[in-house]
Amino acid sequence: MKPTVLVIGADKGGVGKTTVARTLLDYLRAKSVPTRAFDAEYPRGTLKRFHPSVTEIVDIQSTPDQMRMLDTLSTSESRITLIDLRAGHLTTTLKAFRDNGFFDAVQAGEFNFALFHILGPSVASLNEIDEVAPFAGNGSYFVVKNFINDTSFFEWDPAIKSSYFQKTRDATEITIPKLTEMACEQVELAGVPFSSFISNKNAEGGAGNYSLVLRGYVRTWLMQIVSEYERAGLLKRLHAEEAAPSA
């Protein structure tokens, strides 16, 4: 089976890339899809803090690190290689993937590619789509609206809005719903995957002592996200269906 590279990125900061990456790692683990992750928030990674056992920190602009990610695709036991980019590095990384021949390999059928493009609430995200959309033809393009912090989206005028929808016609829209601030904060403090928080486990696997109410909020929120991923046919689009035991 062909390995899949799943890139999560945005050119704008603070739109919740790592949050979405964390939900993906939780989802793929729940589906028993072998997955490894690279955290490009070099030198200190956020994703690494929440999912230390599957995550390595890389400097996406260094060639040795690019080799570490891409040259190991065929030999790794993981079906999916998830790359959580740091803010501002999406376009440059996509260009690097074109220049180093990765997209050629995708076109040749050697690998699969999927992109989670996390949009910010401002009009600046439109320009990002202009720059990113040309690369999306190499694989599956997901446009993610992240409401976790209760941002209101796309308050620009209808003409601009419709041009946005034209450009992303081939994209699959995914919505991440709002999560109560206190629940966000307590998961941040706990530094564990969402699924561990829900089942009240700390990083060492012991009892977590988290708030019942906040665990409830996170559980409902994650269930909504899982149903978004299912609706989008995510496993199929990531070519991970065979890896997951049939439900």
């Binding site: 109560t180 601030e181 206190m182 708030s211 109410v213």
Partner: peptide, 10 residues
């Protein structure tokens, strides 16, 4: 209020 919800259910 979320803090009150926690104070109650927890």
């Amino acid at each position: 209020r979320v803090p009150d919800q926690m104070a109650l259910f927890d």
